[in-house]
Amino acid sequence: MHAKKYVGLLLPWLLLLLPAEVYAQAENAIKGIPGLPAVTVQTNPDGSQNYTVTLQILAIMTALSLLPAILMMMTSFTRIIIVFAILRQALGLQQSPSNQILIGLSLFLTFFIMSPVFNQVNEEALQPYIKEQIGPVEALERTSKPFHAFMLAQTRETDLDLFMRIADVNDIQTPQDVPMNILVPAFVTSELKTAFQIGFILFIPFLVIDIVVASVLMAMGMMMLSPLIISLPFKIMLFVLVDGWAMVIGTLAASFG
């Protein structure tokens, strides 16, 4: 539900990036003037192909449906949201902060961490494509390179080897030659492992507080009183005193180098 909301917010801005021919074709259709052909593929002298504006719009709309999956699986979002969820569980808070707050914070932190990648994509792929200096195929290739470099830097070699063995791929000479169909699942696997490692470290101090409180209550004979009720204020106090949110967010941002 939230992913559809963000796609709806981005759609008007993406429409502004469409070539002027789209609006000219719509105006001609209203006036009854024949527009551009629906399906046209033009071959360039260098062997590349340019597609008609109608096909380009179809490709953009199809890409929008995949935007939530791309945002979650090819960026830093996965690691961030998992760490925040484990942190909330370690504090003993079930609904605070709410899921909406955690997802919103994760999204903005993802945009902050991924800003160098997004800027590179804008400069090398999006702007040349808008200015009609490159074709859609070359723009897609330029877009994938920054994401490929980012994911490769965060992926463990063991995870890459695992998926290369599963895919029976042995002819890769350099890491830059790893195809996306192998890199993406390896990257997601590495992100899950890293997120759980960070979550385990966050869990330890709160677990110690729970053990101490439970031991004190048992020594006092107050077995009917839940230790979570007593330990929750102490855990919140400890988290606030050490400026926990700044430490967690700073650690997450630094973990991506």
Rank of each mutant, 00 (worst) to 15 (best):
residue 147 F to H: 03
residue 124 E to N: 12
residue 24 A to C: 06
residue 164 M to S: 04
residue 201 I to N: 03
residue 60 I to T: 07
residue 208 V to E: 00
residue 211 I to V: 15
residue 32 G to D: 08
residue 57 I to W: 08
residue 153 A to W: 08
residue 246 A to L: 09
residue 125 A to V: 07
residue 205 P to N: 04
residue 224 M to E: 02
residue 5 K to I: 12
residue 74 M to C: 07
residue 5 K to S: 10
residue 248 V to I: 10
residue 242 V to Q: 07
residue 150 F to K: 08
residue 13 W to A: 13
residue 108 F to W: 02
residue 75 T to A: 07
residue 104 G to W: 05
residue 232 L to S: 13
residue 90 A to E: 07
residue 253 A to Q: 15
residue 84 F to T: 01
residue 203 F to G: 02
residue 18 L to F: 09
residue 198 I to F: 06
residue 176 Q to C: 10
residue 12 P to K: 06
residue 101 I to L: 10
residue 249 I to F: 11
residue 250 G to S: 06
residue 93 L to S: 12
residue 168 D to E: 14
residue 98 S to F: 01
residue 248 V to N: 07
residue 152 L to W: 05
residue 192 L to K: 10
residue 15 L to A: 01
residue 205 P to A: 04
residue 80 I to E: 01
residue 129 Y to Q: 08
residue 190 S to I: 03
residue 34 P to T: 09
residue 207 L to E: 03
residue 235 K to Y: 06
residue 74 M to I: 00
residue 174 T to E: 14
residue 15 L to S: 02
residue 141 E to G: 09
residue 71 L to H: 00
residue 158 T to D: 15
residue 116 P to Q: 03
residue 239 F to N: 01
residue 52 T to M: 08
residue 127 Q to H: 12
residue 81 I to S: 03
residue 32 G to W: 11
residue 124 E to Y: 02
residue 155 T to W: 08
residue 255 S to E: 02
residue 119 N to E: 15
residue 79 R to G: 00
residue 51 Y to C: 04
residue 243 D to Y: 01
residue 238 L to K: 07
residue 35 G to C: 13
residue 146 P to R: 01
residue 201 I to W: 05
residue 92 G to K: 05
residue 73 M to G: 13
residue 117 V to R: 03
residue 22 V to C: 13
residue 56 Q to W: 05
residue 160 L to M: 06
residue 226 S to I: 09
residue 203 F to H: 04
residue 100 Q to P: 01
